[in-house]
Design a protein around this nucleic acid. Sequence first.
DNA 1: GTAGGGTTAG
Length: 748
Amino acid sequence: MVLKNLIPYYMISSITTKFDHALQTIRGNHNLRQLHDCSFQVQHARPTPPKPQIIIDRDPHIVQYTKSISTHMRNGHCHLALRLFNDMPYRNLFSWNLMLAGYVKNRRLADARNLFDLMPQRDVVSWNTMLSGYVRSGCVDEAKLVFYNMPHKDSISWNGLLAVYVQNGRLEEARWLFELKSDWKLISWNCLMGGYVKRKMLGDARHLFDRMPVRDVISWNTMISGYAQDGDLSQARTLFEESPVRDVFTWTSMVYGYAQNGMLDEARRVFDEMPAKREMTYNVMIAGYVQYKEMDMARELFEAMTCRNVGSWNIMISGYGQNGNIAQARKLFDMMPQRDCVSWATIIASYAQTGHLEEAMDMLVEMKRDGESLNRSTFCCALSTCADMTSLVLGQQVHGQVVKTGYDNGCLVGNALLEMYCKCGSICEAYNVFERIQQKDIISWNTMLAGYARHGFGRQALLMFDSMKISGFKPDEITMVGVLSACSHTGLTDRGTEYFYSMNKDYGITPNSKHYNCMIDLLGRAGRLGEAYNLMRNMPFEPDAATWGALLGASRIHGNTELGEKAAEMVFSMEPHNTGMYVLLSNLYAALGKWVDVGKLRLKMRQLGIQKIPGYSWVEVQNKIHTFTVGDCFHPEKDRIYAYIEELDLKLKREGHVSLVKLVLHDVEEEEKKQMLKYHSEKLAVAFGILTIPAGRPIRVMKNLRVCEDCHNAIKHISKLVGRLIILRDSHRFHYFSEGICSCGDYW
DNA sequence: GTAGGGTTAG
């Protein structure tokens, strides 16, 4: 819960074990063709003994075998189980079923299927086991196939099919199936109701709940927690009062509901009333305090706990981390009697979030030293940290580890890798990663698209958009932000406008504030400041700092002081310390030669305590800069600039730094060039040739002055030639980019 | 010693 605000939602989902668990199988890519291409093989080395006509189930020898097989399977040692299985003098149906169930439990669906196909005979348990394998892995089609081929179906089989629909959000089909027969077991009622609750279809859930012939504590809990999580505490409370049975989940759901919605006193009242509390309930209550920044209350309860579990510690650490008290977080972390991977992930995320990126990476190293193996969640966390540090070198190291564990073609880790490479400006690598992801999801596509857009590859971004649609993905809000920003950064004003106005009709997406901001940016860049301003005025919501920032950016490009000052004023009223905007305004003045105003602005900044702008000088950059965009391809000195850049690259390489400077040039089609020329007035320097410097290492190198004088001078020289550097900074959480400009030699 | 449901926290 606490981490939700820190890292992208798909990452937080991964932290819950359940998701991680599900993920292992869902991403395992078990389509039918691959089912047969698997490692499982029953050895036929020893001649098959004469098959006993009657299966002697109680044969003590066989029972011994099956017991051992079961133990091995429980411990995840499939190969040992298989060896025993192969060694058995003969195999009864029970042992086959046991092996099958073992494979299913260990997520080795392909092996399970192969075994299933080899079975000399199958009973309803075999079929149900196979079905459950597909159900757990979310393979709807395969599950259906198994279900329809089953000679005999019992309530478990029916429930399996229902579950596979429910779990994959295919509630219409589930509903249809449910109406087919009337003798559903309680478990299936609960299953369908749970599906409605998960989808926030509380009306449907309640309807079902009211129709239920029998209810058990699970039915009540599902409904209560549904209301509680939806914030409908009065309904939850009513049901809670009515419920004939309550268990720890019933109580905890109520505490959770109140705590989540900030009704901490109510939550505490229920909590105090609750008999026989468990750590879980304490943790929920503490997490509530943490979320509403009541760290003292959280601490008090934490101290009062007689038996804390790892989760309790983790919540407290995350709470301190989130509230900026990193020292306290670290102290608790060091005090912990036991740590799990989440503890590490939390402390690392806390460091990363508070800007202590180096410490974050150090902890990562320490974590490995401590023997904690990186799992998917921690890999994601690590990669996200690398991305925030824009440290390609570290990111590549983590990537190496990922490859070793074989997580790299999974979707979750794949997406994290993708994001890391995109943020570190290594767009080609990003594309390689993208291609390797076996089952791409919408996030993969969105990340790749946004990556292209961010780095000025507008055309590729739009191509991505098309292939994404061809692959059967429906663009979502985030996709459209990427598309609009791609148009904006490529000068495709008309196309962007078209997308904006038709996205509701075409994809059913109502433009949100981010889309509007993109549009304002798009129009502003094209010099259509009036239109941009009007659009802002007619937005269905109040303009925020980003909106005004886009206008300020446009005003800077087109030298419109009046609008620029107004926009800046608005930004500063909302975000007085938005350094990027100070730089923009300062550059607007500088471009118009208003040096007096520049001076005034700098004075004001100093008064505000903004001595140096982090991220805007070569020495101080460290964390903020993701990509330096130098000049445009029509720059008169373009060739010389590139020559210098290459020279610098060589020099740095000679000093032993790997791939420090990377030059990316676009292939621009003739027609597009014309469009660009038309779009950019001569004054503009908009991204076209992109110099991408993975900021982490080289910058740190320079900070430590380990770079030779030559290189330092070369860098200075480049920026002088270019005249100015456009720094693309992305506030990645919003997929929206604001630009700051640093004047030549202006290393504050 | 074989197959099916709800759940909190990080």
